[in-house]
Design a protein around this nucleic acid. Structure first.
Length: 92
RNA sequence: CAGGUCGGUCGGGCGGUCGCGGCCCUGGUACAGGGUCGAGGAAAGUCCGCGCUCCACAGGGCAGGGUGCCGGGUAACACCCGGGGCGCCGUAAGGUGCCGGACAGGGCCACAGAAACAUACCGCCUCGGAUGAGGUAAGGGUGAAAUGGUGGUGUAAGAGACCACCGGCGAGCGCAGUAAUGCGCCGGCCAGGCAACCCCCACCCGGAGCAAGGCCAAGCAGGGACCAUCCCUUCGGGGUAAGGGCGGCCCGUCCAAGGGUCCCGGGUAGGCCGCUAGAGCCGCCGGGAGACCGGUGGCCCAGAGAGAUGACCGCCCAUCUCCUUCGGGAGUGGACAGAACGCGGCUUAUAGACCGGCCUGGGUG
RNA sequence: CGGGGUGUAGCGCAGCCCGGUAGCGCACGUGCAUUGGGGGCAUGUGGUCGGCGGUUCAAAUCCGCCCACCCCGA
């Protein structure tokens, strides 16, 4: 994941998968997985940042929940999550 | 029941919730809502064969390439079906490989061996004192390959020289079969191998590919070379011709107007069509040994642009791993892969499941 | 999507058309020479010929099928 400030009140997320990930169908699936995982975090993110998610080779084998967990870890490391709402969601 | 073998089918199912792409409708336009459809048996490799489009109307010859037992199927094939011969594996069902021509010609056959396609090293026999000369191919030896095997007759020694049986060979005759071929008779002992080396024979193939090709819009700047004819004329005629269509060459043929061809330079990187209703799929009936063919009823089944078909939850089926008190329990959660003119094949990848035919072994009646 | 090419020693390449011996350069080992190094000379090591089948007595070479890499085409 690459992160950069964008001087606005919006969050923008890009997804990419290079040729090393696999053939076209596998690359598409990797991108869909990242988008789907990102979807669930969108309401809890701090505004004003651009994110770029890069798929690496073993990603399509991981499955949805694993990708989600790793993504959560990355977002926390970047201090982009708004704690309170996140915790409330976990309690649910 | 167990093991094997051949052929065929499927390759997750149901329900719910979020998504993605094409088309249609509505609002209305950088969007939203509704409806509907949305990967495969290999979509793959691009190894063959067709359709389609352009190149001239697809012509002739050469070169080049392909196929190669026989008959059939097909739009066509190197594919499929049925049959034949020879070899190998298997108890069997069955599997698997090969198949025009080596008296049309050329070439090659390393090493070894006397000799590799026409011969005689050792040996055997005869003549002879010996060198040697002649006869011979049974035995030895070399090799991937050296004039068939066994027994006999015969002989100086031997040999298909002759005889019996077997093996192979024959473009000889008869019968059966559409044919490959099979069976019988007869003949004579007949000289290797490689044509996935050139070649010969028969048959087939023009070249390119949807970035084919057609239409529209936008944009730009021109320059150079060659040909476009020239020559002779006794006015009948005769001679000469660049370039391109024609993506190997030749012939033949076409282009010739104020035009053609080539080179350099400049501009564009947009849209529409082609683009999916077809050698189509499913069912039934009929023909056929089968591949397949004919008839009939129903169905419409992705089509975009650097390119969409997935995720989550619950239940079920199958897989794999572990535990087991053999009842089951826990986890895992599916193989190979994925359209971009379209078809028919071949080849390659593929966890597993199901159905049917046949063979072998065991048990029971 | 279509068309074409290459694969041989650690590296770069011959050999393949026309079948029998796999060779060249660099690199590497040893020795000579030098006070020592480089260079030189001599000598040596090293290759499933991309993989699997087939033809042949015999395959890097001929014929199929796969694999990997590279190039070209509006």
């Amino acid at each position: 994941m690459l992160v950069a400030p964008n001087q606005s009140e919006e969050i923008r997320v890009g997804v990419a998968a290079g040729r090393s990930v696999g053939p076209a169908v596998v690359r598409n699936r990797a991108k869909r997985l990242l988008r789907a995982a990102m979807q669930s975090f969108l309401p809890d993110l701090k505004p004003g940042w651009d994110l770029l998610l890069l798929a690496r080779k073993p990603l399509p084998e991981a499955g949805y929940w694993k990708v989600r967990a790793v993504l959560e870890m990355l977002l926390e490391k970047a201090h982009l999550l708004m704690r309170s709402t996140n915790e409330s969601r976990l309690r649910e």
